[in-house]
């Protein structure tokens, strides 16, 4: 037993030769956010508070695709979504289609705590944010010049490669990774187990570059992008549609619950067998303080630490880091 924490800043086709000006700020942000989470766990904060705190910090960082720095829809707008879940009570909250809320993850927590519902979206979620008095800003706050450029490149690539009437899934990925190597990457998430054995998971994202207006991905869907129960907490990232088909986060827990396998085995099974290669990565912790961070993409921005002193920050498989 003991606390453990893991966080991610997205999985995908991260080029191994990612230039230092793109790599270093992200590594630094992962380290910074990990430190914040570790300090909070050492101060005996509840796992739910820890994951919210860490994801807020990741949302505020413009290099990740969540909060400020969210990627743009085909209309050039930002539509953010987030989800949080408390393992022991299985209470959860989710939001989609946010355009002005500085920290979507905190609004999802308010949906969990202050409404009889789990999931609010679009205008209704924005109205709820106003009622709750959370910090809101003009939508332009979230839009970075880098993401304007990404959208432009994605649209150019799209013109030749995507006919929306044809469901050619392979092309979706080819197109977006061709844009600049990491355009689709950067959903953020955090999972934690505290000293009391409380588990929690949180995930936040701007979604997919050039996504259709109104598109909902895996992040806010309980059991797909985010899940926690008394056994484990999971946050997934990657190609949303594949993660939804695979009910990825719930399946890690279901394998532990119904098949009796360990966290590492369950996570490896889901990543290797239930989702096509190149589509998913996840971070997970168990009630007993284990941590695992598998992915079947080229890389995943990730970090973890456990009470016994283990700590890791990485992007590619260990031999490439």
């Amino acid at each position: 037993m003991g606390w453990a924490i893991a966080l991610h800043g997205g999985a995908g086709d991260i080029p191994v030769n990612l230039p230092p000006e793109r790599r270093l700020p992200r590594e630094e942000a992962l380290r910074h956010c990990l430190d914040i989470g570790v300090d909070a766990l050492k101060s005996h904060k509840h796992a739910l508070d820890v994951v919210e705190l860490v994801v807020r910090e990741l949302e505020n960082h413009p290099n990740f695709n969540a909060g400020k720095g969210s990627v743009l829809t085909t209309a050039g707008t930002v539509e953010m979504e987030a989800c949080i879940m408390d393992g022991n009570t299985k209470r959860c909250g989710a939001v989609s289609g946010l355009t002005t809320v500085v920290n979507p993850i905190s609004l999802s927590r308010l949906v969990m705590e202050k409404t009889p519902h789990i999931y609010l979206a679009f205008d209704g979620a924005e109205a709820f944010a106003r009622e709750q008095g959370v910090e809101t800003v003009d939508s332009s706050h979230f839009i970075t010049p880098e993401n304007v450029e990404r959208l432009k490149q994605a649209k150019e690539a799209n013109r030749v490669q995507i006919d929306y009437t044809q469901p050619i899934q392979e092309d979706v990925q080819k197109e977006s990774s061709a844009a600049d190597g990491d355009s689709q990457i950067g959903t953020v998430g955090c999972v934690a187990v505290d000293n009391q054995g409380n588990l929690a998971a949180a995930t936040s994202t701007g979604g997919l570059v050039n996504k259709m207006v109104g598109r909902i991905g895996d992040t806010p869907i309980i059991g797909s992008g985010t899940y926690a129960n008394h056994l484990c907490a999971v946050s997934a990232t990657g190609k949303g549609e594949a993660i939804i088909h695979g009910t990825v986060a719930r399946d890690v827990a279901a394998l532990m619950e119904f098949k009796g396998v360990s966290l590492k085995e369950a996570a490896a099974c889901v990543v290797e067998e239930r989702v096509p290669k190149g589509n998913v990565g996840l971070v997970a912790v168990s009630a007993s303080g284990e941590v695992t961070m598998p992915f079947n993409t080229t890389g995943m921005f990730r970090a973890c630490a456990t009470e016994d002193g283990y700590s890791e920050i990485g992007i590619w498989t260990s031999s490439q880091n």
Binding site: A121, Y164, G214, G240
Partner: peptide, 13 residues
């Protein structure tokens, strides 16, 4: 499912 690259669309979209 059949005609979009996505799995889930909501509200005005």
């Amino acid at each position: 499912m059949d005609k979009s690259p996505h799995s889930y669309l909501a509200f005005s979209g």
